[in-house]
Design a binder for these strands. Structure first.
Lengths: 137, 137
DNA sequence: CATCTGTTATATATAGTATATAACAGATGC
DNA sequence: GCATCTGTTATATACTATATATAACAGATG
């Protein structure tokens, strides 16, 4: 069922990779509002990692408002809680860091705009393909 | 001379904070092409951290192409080596992560465009203020 | 009641971070 | 030449973060 792939040679922590991929899964509508993530034990088995590592990722996602954990059902996707201004403020810091890097590397405002459009279109592209009934990757 | 400020309570590593702040310093033209960073020992004293921590930050900046280290002068700002396509590719991964977060939190393409413009203008704003001869923060 | 769920506790091994002390080679200025 | 600066390297230590392994508990399900 799952599209998670862990790079064990990455310098990014496994629980962070899990978080990021799940967030990208939501952004590309691979998983949607109301969907339930696998149980911590199930996903751990599936991916070949420890239960606690999955649990840490889920806890982080809960803390950041991407899922709500129900004892009965498990981790349910539920991202919408916050208002836009709050969301912008959260995004702003990371975005500032990246834009500083981009600028130092010679990218202009227009280059960034193009890149952002590109990525957003890729998100939508996946949505479209999914709607057409193609198999999930 | 320096605009570096370390948050010792942050969960971000000190050497990472150093890197980020120096990169942002370049983006806002607080420091420019050809300028020389303080020696590892000097900056370490100034900020109140260990020499090796500064050295690690400088090594990272060197590795990522932001400075060139000259045994005589020290760490010289020199960011321009790579072509745009290469730069875009480097930025793309981080940007994808942030945009996924932004989308999950309900931000639209337009919201992002506004945010990007905002941040870029803040960069330019600092440039303008600096040109006018205001004191450095 | 067996079996699933999240959650918590404890222990352990490994890696990353930050510090301290020390030394070396190259460059600079007196 | 010599003291003094530079980056660089080596070693050791303390602390924290990460990931794993076992184990147990309470609530919910069929």
């Amino acid at each position: 069922m799952m599209f998670i792939e862990i790079d064990f040679n990455s310098d990014e922590a496994i629980y962070q990779q899990l978080c990021n991929q799940i967030i990208q899964g939501i952004a590309t509508a691979r998983i949607a509002q109301g969907d339930v993530l696998p149980s911590v034990r199930q996903l751990a088995d599936e991916v070949g990692i420890n239960m606690h590592t999955v649990n840490k990722a889920y806890s982080l996602l809960k803390q950041e408002g991407y899922v709500k954990v129900d004892r009965r059902k498990g981790a349910v996707i539920s991202c919408s809680g916050q208002n836009k201004d709050e969301a912008k403020q959260i995004i702003r810091k990371d975005m500032t860091g990246i834009l500083a890097q981009a600028r130092c590397r010679g990218l202009t405002k227009e280059d960034i705009a193009e890149l952002v459009n590109d990525i957003y279109n890729a998100f939508d592209e996946y949505d479209r393909v999914k709607e057409a009934g193609r198999p999930k990757v």
